[in-house]
Design a protein around this nucleic acid. Structure first.
Lengths: 347, 347
DNA sequence: TTGTAAGCGTTATCAC
DNA sequence: GTGATAACGCTTACAA
């Protein structure tokens, strides 16, 4: 009993094709018939069947959002909620829908991408994370399927459109900031080492330390997961050092939360005993105790630009879209102290 | 140059309909031809067009996930990531895809739901939040479109399938716990008062207080938002009281984070100066400083059951699905103290 | 400016 | 068991 374009056509005394043209607001239809047809559409409470449309059209007006495997702790990172906010802001405006693609592990994510792409459920894909040797990227590239990456690509950086921050520069800035505050022994804690963000921020950190003649021991660089256990692992490793560093660069707010909490458990307080500088400035950063000094990477804009990019890629397949670097900004809150003040408190 | 069922049919020397039957693994096809056809499908690297399928089939094998308006601070609540994990766990297994439905404000969400439902993009809907006077619920009910609600419905509780915790009981348990610890002046901080969770947990709190002959002033019941400003508003209101309560029931971990952090800003420390008992036990609870005593409401299972429910509703429209209450459990961590110990610390 | 008719890639119905 | 063939609901040449 679904009402179709034919019903509308009949009642409006026009051909189905005319109705179709009214739907897509074709300029070749007179205002008069447009009005007439629209009136009937309203009367009949007609709404186009999007599947039929997609089939005839070869366009779905939807885009696939690929998230990390749901079993990863990172899945719950508020980062994703915020990128998605950015994506929807633009895609809703452009009347694109979003398909949610994930799986419990990497393999399942790959399969779901595969099914979605080959089933022609979406016109393009936004990859919400970037890691090394990602089969999905290879797959999409090979099939020449439009996609954009949030984060920097591992390979083929010239051929892949991405939206990212200049994480290398951000890490340099942050490290310099700590050095300016008098810190000399600085540790680094990042998420999985296969993630491109981790890699890039680490490089920025290392280079800056070296440029300033400061050494970093291997044990002072730690990769861990976004859980309390992850925080504990990092803290334990740091406490095994003969002396605690005076500051840490942490690549993610969630990680920072865990570290601060576990430190507290050991009676080590941030920033009195050790300073932390964090990244992302997700909503957590300002809710934390103490509030985090963190690099605001404009997560929302990252998502917004990604959507913009993929949609224009879809709509003008030839207009070569270029990658985008979204600006960042250090937000100083309460987790960093000058080295000298830090000493004072202790004595 | 897409390869279709016809190409497969030709190469396998069978009719298109046979190929179709092989795809859906019809028992009426002999194993022999199945093998033959499958081999050709592999050779040609064939994959069915899901839109065509949906059209012919009148079934999309996808379900819509309705999130709160993206402009709400609640959008970033890790609660949603975790429910979604639960939903995908089941839906992937059943080979259902997920459509992501939201908008910047309520109106846009409604429109998006409308478009998705009438466009037949999904077979059913999961509403991820429950608030009073929700137009979406009315819309879906009127159109007899399959949906399930995560949370308790405001109206028509008999007619709507929902998946929820017994929030009333949980709030009672939690309040009793505080009373057992010797607390007499207990405040309540919740999210928006239009949310059903807030309402139910508040009732449990109030009833328990009353049953124990404890009074609650109007100013000790606060509704606020999931931001630092929200936390600040709550803390300010509490600090205006002639005396600070000795404990607070807070309906959400994110809210608790903010409150603890703002308290700290005023030199008031949790749990030394005031106890907090929280809800949801999202990943944040264990990462917080200090880690939150919180009611684990099994968010994952909430999502899993919702998916199970909607899918069986879709597949057997007559088998009346019943609502489900997911168990909860108080997880004691570090934000609560006995009233007497609390006094000791102070003196 | 509008109508006719042939797709879009499947599935479903009815034969055999 | 398998094959023709008509839907499914829309778009788009091509005609008029």
């Amino acid at each position: 009993m679904t009402i179709t374009i034919k019903d509308v056509a009949k009642l409006a005394n026009v051909a189905p094709s005319t109705v179709s043209r009214v739907i897509s607001n074709s300029p070749r239809i007179s205002e008069k018939t447009k009005r007439k047809v629209r009136k009937v559409m309203d009367e009949l409470n007609y709404h186009p069947n999007l599947n039929a449309r997609s089939l005839a059209n070869r366009s779905t007006k939807s885009i696939g959002l690929v998230l990390p495997p749901a079993l990863d702790a990172s899945f719950q990172n508020p980062f994703f909620a915020e990128v998605i906010r950015g994506v929807t802001a633009y895609s809703n405006q452009k009347e694109y829908s979003l398909y949610f693609i994930t799986g419990k592990n990497e393999e399942e994510v790959e399969q779901t991408v595969n099914k979605t792409v080959r089933g022609r459920r979406v016109d393009g894909i936004i990859l919400l994370y970037s890691k090394e040797n990602d089969n999905i990227i290879d797959y999409l590239s090979e099939h020449n399927f439009p996609f954009v990456l949030v984060g920097k690509p591992y390979h083929y950086i010239e051929d892949i459109t991405y939206v990212d921050n200049d994480n290398y520069a951000a890490a340099r800035e942050v490290t310099n900031y700590l050095i300016d505050q008098g810190h000399k022994r600085i540790a680094f804690v990042g998420g999985e080492s296969s993630l491109l963000v981790t890699k890039n921020r680490l490089r920025g950190f290392q280079d800056t330390m070296q440029l300033n003649g400061l050494s970093v021991k291997e044990e002072e660089i730690i990769f861990t997961s976004f859980t309390r256990d992850g925080g504990r692992k990092a803290v334990n490793q740091l406490m095994e050092l003969t002396e605690l560093p005076s500051a840490i660069v942490v690549t993610d707010d969630v990680l920072s939360l865990g570290i601060i909490s576990v430190f507290q458990e050991h009676g080590i307080s941030v920033p009195k005993d050790i300073s932390i500088i964090s990244f992302n400035n997700a909503i957590l950063a300002e809710l934390a105790n103490p509030p985090l000094t963190s690099v605001d990477i404009n997560i929302f804009q990252l998502g917004y630009e990604a959507a913009k990019n993929i949609i224009s890629k879809i709509e003008e397949p030839d207009g070569s879209e270029k990658s985008i670097l979204v600006p960042y900004k250090l937000i100083v809150r309460d987790t960093c102290m000058k080295k000298e003040d830090l000493e004072l408190v202790k004595s």
